[in-house]
Design a protein around this nucleic acid. Structure first.
Length: 560
RNA sequence: UGACCCAUGGUGUAAUGGUAGCACAGCAGAUUUUGGUUCUGUCAGUCAAGGUUCGAAUCCUUGUGGGUCAACCA
């Protein structure tokens, strides 16, 4: 929870509403929210915000949250999605009170449709889809009544039951509410309640061939479950009038809808349509590609549920459109990983160092702390020998100002091991540095100088003899521009895709990583946080770079 | 162009008629066997114009800017 400087609690507008409701005794102080995904795709970070909001609110006010699948369109939905959605919610750390489906309510919804027909508030329309569209008018012009609008209750009842019985082909008839074709809110211009779809539904099979529209299912489903606070995103604002209309006409439990602004992140897209396109057109390797903003993608990338939850809580809940800095998400990720990820050493772009005064066949154990933020994480040993790999960019033949790593004649600390000094630079015929000949100070075991001289540079290393080769996947942002949706008229949004969002390299890691398991996270010292990919095997390690460490040297050096 | 929603530093969010605060990002410094972490400092904001009021980010009006709505999608 956020607190102001004085320490008193501040609430978002939904929390204020709930507190007011509890105080006034509305619903007997009861709080019941719901998370209502349509099982037609994978969940992304935007859904995570909604999940954290719905479940978080219930937790905060002693209530519960239902998981309800909004499965009213059989042509788009599948159990595959149901399963992944459940997995993702659980992974985020939430448990639902009940698992419901809008399709559980199909019979009740049908009865309510009958009810509306009997009240002369609904009618069967024989117009074609095209005619309906044309007669709806536009945002500035009123629509025209359907010629079938005044059918008798008996005829409507007959036709609607025959729609259900399967007597008519897809698209031939719909059931519409009878409201007002001149209403300024387009949603109120005799909205469609039921359409005919002869398709197999992932739960109800072939039991139905008419399916309710979102508007005729969502509010009533809330009502059936006695949801007290139905929270959704801004674009449903205009639907609220209809939501309330059904509740009023049907005289059912008055759930209420509240809208908040959906989450947007810089350098990524969030719409299901665009995400699907990225997958189908092979810009990424699938829904769980670590570059995707999907929950499964973030999980594979190495994000922790805790960091996502903290992020969701801290971005706030309001009604204005927003686009949040990816760096805020990364901040909470690093904050979390810093506390829990064990440190390891890995060299991504190696250059060999030979310590000329170190005995050829000697190996000794170096003790390294696993996590300076957590003493309980203990220590591990790393073998040290005459040859080690260091990072290529930790050496510069002609070091610029403020560079305090290795250079000819300079001394640097090999982390946890010894101080070494570079004496000789070996190059190949192209002038490329291939090897560094150094000497070590035998008195500097553990990396401490015996005479008190200060050595500022500390670099990581991996022993050549015990190094394990590993594939390392380096990810960068998927888009080059902050707002990939903001492209000039007529330009494809995909032109903004970053062609270098994935770089696969071969590096070396220290031997203690030999048995690392998929999804385990580590900090490779001075490089970043990396986790083990699903593709990893004991003899073929694969690491994903989750996020780099903050790097103030990179800032200094690129500024020049 | 109609209806509705929204407008506070670069980004996000608080202040509920009474001192515009917090976080991220940026910048500067201290500490450091990770150029990490931690700590300190710093830059920077109420869309505009009127009105109400002792007092307005907050209420009202108008304007401006952004968003949503014209699927038998959700």
């Amino acid at each position: 929870m956020k607190t102001s400087e004085a320490g008193e609690k501040t609430r978002n507008f939904i929390e204020e509403i709930i507190e007011r409701d509890i105080e006034s005794g509305k619903h007997g102080g009861r709080v019941l929210t719901r998370f209502p995904p349509e099982p037609n795709g994978y969940l992304h970070i935007g859904h995570a915000k909604s999940i954290c909001l719905n479940f978080g609110l219930a937790q905060k006010y002693g209530g519960k949250t239902n998981l309800r699948f909004d499965d009213t369109n059989p042509t788009k939905e599948d159990v595959e999605y149901v399963d992944s959605i459940k997995e993702d919610i659980k992974w985020l750390g939430f448990s639902w009170a009940n698992e419901f489906y809008a399709s559980d309510y199909f019979e009740q919804l049908y009865q309510w449709a009958l009810d509306l027909i009997n009240k002369e508030l609904a009618f069967v329309d024989d117009q074609t889809q095209e005619e309906i569209r044309l007669n709806r008018g536009t945002v500035t012009q009123p629509g025209k009544n359907s010629p079938f609008r005044d059918r008798s209750v008996e005829e409507n009842l007959d036709l609607f039951s025959r729609m259900r019985a399967g007597e008519f082909p897809d698209g031939s008839r719909v059931l519409r509410a009878k409201i007002d074709m001149a209403h300024p809110n387009m949603l109120m211009r005799d909205p469609i309640l039921y359409r005919i779809i002869h398709a197999h539904h992932h739960r109800t099979g072939d039991e139905w061939c008419i399916y309710p529209m979102y508007d005729f299912a969502h509010g009533q489903s809330d009502s059936i479950e006695r949801i007290t606070h139905s929270i959704c995103t801004l674009e449903f604002d205009v639907h609220r009038m209809l939501y309330d209309w059904f509740i009023e006409k049907l005289e059912i439990f008055p759930s209420h809808q509240y809208e908040f602004a959906r989450l947007n992140l810089t350098y990524t897209v969030m719409s299901k349509r665009k995400l699907l396109q990225l997958v189908q057109e092979n810009f990424v390797d699938g829904w769980d590609d670590p570059r995707m903003p999907t929950i499964c993608g973030l999980r594979r990338r190495g994000y922790t549920p805790e960091s996502i939850r903290t992020f969701a809580e801290r971005v706030g809940v309001a009604k204005r459109d927003n686009i949040i800095d990816l760096s805020l998400l990364e901040f909470y990720l690093r904050e979390d990983l810093n506390k829990r990820a064990e440190r390891r050493m890995a060299v991504l772009e190696p250059i060999k160092v030979i310590i000329t005064n170190y005995p050829e066949d000697k190996t000794e154990d170096i003790h390294a702390v696993n996590n300076p933020e957590d003493e309980a994480a203990g220590k591990r040993t790393i073998p040290f020998g005459r040859e080690v790999y260091i990072e290529r960019n930790d050496f510069m033949e002609e070091p610029p100002k403020k560079f305090f790593r290795l250079a000819p004649g300079r001394e640097v600390r090999l982390r946890y091991a010894y101080l070494i000094r570079c004496n000789e630079v070996i190059k190949d015929e192209n002038g490329e540095v291939v090897e560094l000949h150094c000497t070590y100070d035998p008195e500097s075991a553990g990396g401490k100088s015996s005479d008190g001289r200060r050595v500022k540079g500390v670099i990581h290393w991996v022993p050549v003899k015990h190094a394990i080769k590993a594939e390392v996947r380096l990810f960068d942002r998927l888009f080059q521009n902050e707002d990939p949706n903001d492209v000039p008229e007529g330009t494809d949004w995909k032109t903004g895709i970053n062609p270098d969002s994935l770089k696969v390299i071969e590096g070396f890691v220290e031997p203690s990583l030999a048995n690392a398991e998929p999804l385990q996270s580590f900090q490779f010292e001075r490089l970043g946080y990396f986790n083990v990919d699903y593709d990893s095997k004991p003899n073929k390690l694969v690491f994903n770079r989750t996020v780099t460490l903050r790097d103030s040297w990179a800032k200094i050096s690129t500024k020049k």
